[in-house]
Design a protein around this nucleic acid. Structure first.
Lengths: 242, 242
DNA sequence: CGGGCGGTTGATGAGCATCAACACTTGTGG
DNA sequence: CCACAAGTGTTGATGCTCATCAACCGCCCG
C-alpha cells in the first residue's frame, strides 16, 4: 500500500474521499435518482449545510467546488475535505451534520432525501454495499490526512497535497501537471494544519527550486514530478524515528 | 456540539470510535453470533492483523487492549485508535486492512468471518444500518482526532486525551478520576503526534500543577477535572486564529 | 479613487523535536 | 539470589521548524 495521502486530491494513496464521478458506469440507482433531482445553485461563500444542522439530504456536486470543514469554539478551523464535481457529500451524518459544507465559488448540486436513500438501500443491497464502501473510503482518507498532518513536515504536507490534487486531476481526465487551485491559501492552510504564511513560503520555495511554477496564485505547474514525490515522502530528514 | 475529542477514550465529543459494549441491550444478531464464536488469545506485542493483510474477519475484544496503527516506510507511526473490551475492530476494511492491530498485553478476541457478517446484514436491515452507523462514528472519531492533532498544542492534546480516557472509563462503569493507562508513552505519543519526551514532560507539568497525580507511570489520578477541561479547550493561548 | 481581501515576504521567538544522560523496572542467566 | 542487560520513563540542554506579528503588493469592486 502506498503512503501518499489526501482525500481531496486523489485521496492520498488509495481510497477516494467520496463516491467519485469516475466510478464504473454500471447503471447506478443513486446516479439515476440524482440525475432526475432538481439542481440547486449555491453562491460563493454560501453554505449547503452547517455543523449541527439536522441532516436531511445527501448531495452530488454538479458544478463548482465545496469546502468541508469543522470549527472550534475559539475560531480554529479544520478543513476535512474538498468536494469536486461528481463527489457526493453528506454521507455518514447521524442525525446531524458533523461538519459544514461551503461553496468556494458559485456551485450547483443535486440533492436526495435521506429517507429516499434508505429506501433505495433496503431494496437494493448493492447500493447499501456501495454506501458502506464509500464511507470506508472516507474513513481511509480521513486517516490518511491524519497521518499527513500529524507526522509530516510543512514541505512534505504541501508536496503531498499538490500530488494528491494532481492525481485527482488525472482521474478527472485533466492534466497531471497543470493544476488549478479552486481553494484559497487559507483553505489549504486549514486543511494541512499550517498557517497561510507557511503555505505561501513553502510554495515559493518549491518555485525557486524549480519543482513547480506558480502563476496568478491559482495555477500550479508541476515542473519536476519526481522531485515533488521525493519531497512528499520524507524531505531528506531522518531523525530518530526513521 | 462539544469539541472535545478522541476515538479511544470517549471519542472526543460525540460518536464512539467503534461499536461499544455499552450499547443498548436490544437483542443483537452480531452479539449473539460473536458470543458463540471461539475465543482467540493474542499474546502481548502480537498482531491480530497487519496493514495490507487480506481482511477476513471482524473481531470483538473480550479481554485486554489493542493498539490500531499505521506505519510509514521510514518508521513514522500513527496510532489511530485504542480498542477496549467490547469494541469491534476490523470494520471498514475494503479487501485488505488499512492498519495493523497489535495487542498491548495478553488479549482475548472473538472473530466473525466477513462473509457471515455480509449474510447477516442482508437478512437483517437493522444490522446493516448498525454497521453503517458504526462506521460513521469511526469517521467522526477520526476527524475529531485529526482536529486535535492538527490544531491543538501539546498540553491541550494530552489534557484532551486524559479526559477522553476518563469519559471512556465512565461509560465502562469505572472511576472517572482513577485512570489506568494500558498503553505506553510511545503509544500515546504516536497517537497524539508528539514525542515520548513531550508526553512525559507534559504529564509531569500537569502533576506539578496539581491537575493530576501520577503513580508508577500507569495510574493517573485526575485531581482537578475542571482545570484539565480548561487546559483541553484552549490552554490560555489566543493567537490570531482565536 | 480608496477600501478590503488575498497573497507574499521579512523579523522574531515560542514550542516542541532532538540529542544525551540517567533512574527505574523487569526478566534472564550464572 | 544476585548481577546484568534490555526496555521504559524522566529530565536536561540545545536548536530547528513553524507560528506570530508586521509591512507591503496587487487585485477586485463599490
Amino acid at each position: 500500500m502506498l503512503a501518499t495521502a489526501f482525500t481531496t486530491a486523489g485521496d492520498l494513496g488509495n481510497g477516494r474521499s467520496v463516491l467519485d464521478a469516475a466510478a464504473p458506469a454500471a447503471r447506478d440507482p443513486l446516479d439515476d435518482r440524482l440525475a432526475r433531482a432538481a439542481p440547486r445553485t449555491i453562491e460563493a461563500r454560501e453554505h449547503i449545510f452547517c455543523e449541527g444542522d439536522r441532516a436531511t439530504h445527501v448531495y452530488r456536486v454538479e458544478v463548482g467546488h465545496l469546502c468541508i470543514y469543522r470549527m472550534m469554539s475559539d475560531g480554529r478551523r479544520q478543513v476535512v475535505d474538498f468536494a469536486y464535481p461528481g463527489d457526493i457529500i453528506g454521507l455518514g451524518a447521524l442525525g446531524e451534520h458533523g461538519e459544514s459544507a461551503q461553496a468556494m465559488e458559485r456551485t450547483v448540486v443535486r440533492g436526495m432525501p435521506l429517507a429516499t436513500l434508505r429506501e433505495l438501500a433496503q431494496t437494493d443491497h448493492r447500493l447499501g454495499m456501495k454506501l458502506y464502501e464509500a464511507l470506508s473510503r472516507e474513513l481511509m482518507a480521513a486517516r490518511e490526512l491524519l497521518f499527513t498532518v500529524s507526522q509530516r513536515t510543512a514541505t512534505e504536507r504541501v508536496a503531498a497535497f499538490l500530488l494528491a490534487l494532481s492525481r485527482r486531476a488525472v482521474r478527472r481526465g485533466e492534466s497531471a501537471t497543470e493544476i488549478v487551485l479552486p481553494m484559497t491559501r487559507m483553505d489549504i492552510a486549514d486543511f494541512l494544519g499550517l498557517t497561510i504564511e507557511t503555505v505561501s513560503r513553502t510554495l515559493t520555495r518549491l518555485r525557486t527550486d524549480h519543482v513547480i511554477d506558480l502563476e496568478q496564485c491559482i495555477l500550479v505547474t508541476i515542473c519536476n514530478p519526481a522531485a515533488l514525490a521525493e519531497l512528499a515522502q520524507s524531505s531528506g530528514q531522518v531523525g530518530r524515528r526513521g
